[in-house]
Simulated assay, not measured.
Amino acid sequence: MKHAFIAIAVLAVSGCASVNESYAPDGRKAYELNCSGTTRNWDKCLSKAESLCKPAGYDVLRKTGEGRAPAGGGAGGLYGSQTYERGMLIACKPR
Rank of each mutant, 00 (worst) to 15 (best):
S14L: 12
K44R: 13
G74K: 00
L89R: 05
C35P: 11
K2C: 10
E66M: 12
L89A: 07
A9N: 03
L33I: 05
C16I: 12
K29N: 03
G67K: 12
Y84G: 08
Y31K: 00
R68M: 13
A12H: 03
A24C: 05
G80S: 04
A17M: 06
M88F: 04
P55N: 08
Y84M: 04
H3T: 15
R28H: 09
E50G: 12
H3D: 15
E21W: 11
A24S: 00
A75I: 14
N41W: 14
K44N: 14
N20M: 10
P25H: 04
A49R: 05
G87L: 05
A24L: 07
P70F: 03
G65W: 03
Y58T: 09
I6G: 00
N41P: 08
Y58S: 11
P25W: 07
L11D: 14
L52R: 07
R95F: 13
Q82I: 09
K93V: 01
C92Y: 07
L33W: 05
K44C: 07
A12S: 06
K63F: 08
R86L: 04
N20C: 06
N34W: 00
E50I: 08
I90K: 03
S36F: 00
T39H: 02
A71S: 14
W42A: 11
M1S: 13
D59R: 15
L78G: 06
R28Y: 01
K93D: 07
C16Q: 12
C53V: 10
G77D: 00
P55G: 06
E50T: 14
S22C: 10
K44V: 12
A75P: 09
T38M: 11
A75L: 12
G57K: 09
E85W: 08
N34I: 02
R40W: 01
H3W: 10
A71V: 14
P70A: 02
C35V: 06
R28K: 06
G77S: 00
K44E: 09
N34Q: 08
G74D: 00
Y31E: 04
Y58H: 03
G27S: 01
A91M: 08
P25Y: 11
S47Q: 14
N20F: 07
A49F: 04
A91V: 02
G37K: 02
E85L: 10
H3L: 15
N41L: 13
E32Y: 13
V13G: 05
L52S: 02
K93Y: 07
A49V: 13
A75Q: 11
A7P: 02
L78Y: 06
K48Y: 14
A4E: 14
R86G: 04
E50P: 08
R86K: 05
D59G: 01
W42P: 12
P70Q: 01
K48V: 15
K54A: 13
I90G: 03
A7N: 08
T38E: 13
